[in-house]
Write a protein that binds this DNA or RNA. Structure first.
Lengths: 130, 130, 130, 130
DNA sequence: GTGGTCTAGACCACT
DNA sequence: GTGGTCTAGACCACA
């Protein structure tokens, strides 16, 4: 369980934690049933406020990525729910669009984006859920 | 000049305005030298506070997309600066990565992303700056 | 943290704040990592609207002088970026030229200017970034 | 009488006119008694609003640089008033200070400033009034 | 008419 | 507690 958090980033710390855990799951480094650190452990490791980790865990549970077992700890969820919410997909498409616009002003072509995506999808390996 | 703004969106209104104007420029709907609506006009059209529009315009000027001429109005910038800031590109790549992760959980494959990007790049037409 | 602001000055209040903080940094009174007053604190101290201080802080962050950490506060930036933008330097040279013209009409010789500059550079001490 | 004005500049157009005329006087290109163009002439030459030129001339007259003779035209003032107003000099010194601070952040040393000033003073030639 | 600045006060997200 | 965003007004300088 090694990851870091950038307190300077514009992305909220709790969201950085959410993202990184989801990434570790997709990469197969964290597999269903794995125990993840307690809120206090992770907080002291990342040197952040426990409330921040707590918020991240709540969000992950809400998304069905982890589940907490009273008195036992927090675990990666067994059933991987792929909830293809249309609204969320539309939002994702919109974000992609904005990214292309930003890229265009920075001289990043659509081919470069495609390259990035393929490279990263490969990094995720066969764990990609599609 | 048709665009709308969603006051309930997570994205700040001023940023929505920035994004949409940048999109209109890339699509060639707004061309260099074009006058864009005055702060007050756009504010009353979008039913938004003039200060909010003003903030958007100031950000666009900082990015070199528009230029303001005191007492005359605001215009699309003549020289299209493509500033390939490495840091910003790294940030863009990171955002793309996060998007792929999110997509993965929603059942959106890397091919779908590529498709979206190509489609949108085509929409931008020959005005894409790469 | 002692500074004042002149609401009757031609120079916008937010810019006065920017200037004074940059001066304090150069003088070494504020050193990298130092926490600066919160928006509300400084606003009530200067008897100015919080929005005005906020605008100053945002400008300082854009210039890489300070960095804000959500929920924690605002701090003097660690890495001192000296961005030698040619355009800005040309602008600076132009301003200097105008100053000499103004001075000439007020009976201020070029030697007097040089004297002022040397005296002030000394005041900045070894913290001058050249 | 050749000069130009930059409508994109942050400096108000009327002030650019004031500055340039004062510079021409200091350089000896315009000498006491010389007739300068009428408001309308200069306005059409610079392609600016006549009101703007008018404002510049009013300011120049207020500063004692030019004088208007009813029905005859506008002329460079004969007696060169060197009004060493202490307040104005203090203001000038303050502006110089701000310039040094700005320069410091752009990597412009005090020596460079001195160099610039000397070079420009030389450009003004023996017409410098000190 | 234009944009720029400022105030007074509100609400929100993050830590 | 922190900064970020937004509204509803006002006043000013510029052209």
């Amino acid at each position: 369980m090694f990851f870091q958090v950038d307190p300077r980033s514009q992305i909220p710390i709790w969201e950085q934690i959410v993202n990184q855990i989801k990434e570790l799951v997709l990469k197969g480094i964290l597999t269903p049933g794995d125990k993840i650190p307690s809120v206090r452990e992770l907080a002291s490791h990342l040197i952040v406020n426990p409330n921040t980790v707590s918020k991240a865990y709540q969000e992950l549970e809400r998304q069905g990525v982890i589940e907490t077992m009273r008195g036992r700890g927090t675990f990666i969820c067994t059933k991987l729910t792929t909830n293809a919410d249309e609204q969320k997909i539309a939002l994702l498409q919109d974000k992609t669009k904005q990214l292309v616009i930003e890229g265009s002003y920075l001289g990043v072509s659509s081919d470069t984006f495609t390259e990035w995506i393929r490279a990263f999808a490969k990094e995720l390996g066969g764990n990609e859920r599609d």
